[in-house]
């Protein structure tokens, strides 16, 4: 691996951690990107919908909570 960082491995994933003096170039950032977008959509809290409804009112037809939250 390039730079002075460290690669962590686990559960099939690898993430390159830049070293203390290293700021990754855009090409390096692009190379290390991993898309976990589908996983991030999963609710981690069973009451997520209730909490968001309390804070922002009913979602729109696409399920998006757009209220200003007072």
């Amino acid at each position: 691996m390039d730079g002075d960082g460290v690669t962590h491995e686990g559960e099939g994933e690898e993430r390159y951690v830049p070293g203390p003096q290293e700021d990754l170039s855009q090409a390096e950032q692009l190379r290390h990107l991993t898309d976990t977008g589908a996983r991030s959509a999963e609710a981690t809290e069973a009451d997520e919908e209730d909490v968001l409804r309390d804070l922002y009112g009913e979602p729109d037809e696409d399920g998006i909570y757009r209220g200003d939250g007072g």
């Binding site: 589908a38 991030s40 959509a41 609710a43 981690t44 997520e48 968001l52 998006i64």
Partner: peptide, 9 residues
């Protein structure tokens, strides 16, 4: 998040 900009808990 599911390829969208969303509020989450």
């Amino acid at each position: 998040t599911s390829d969208a900009l969303q509020r989450k808990v």
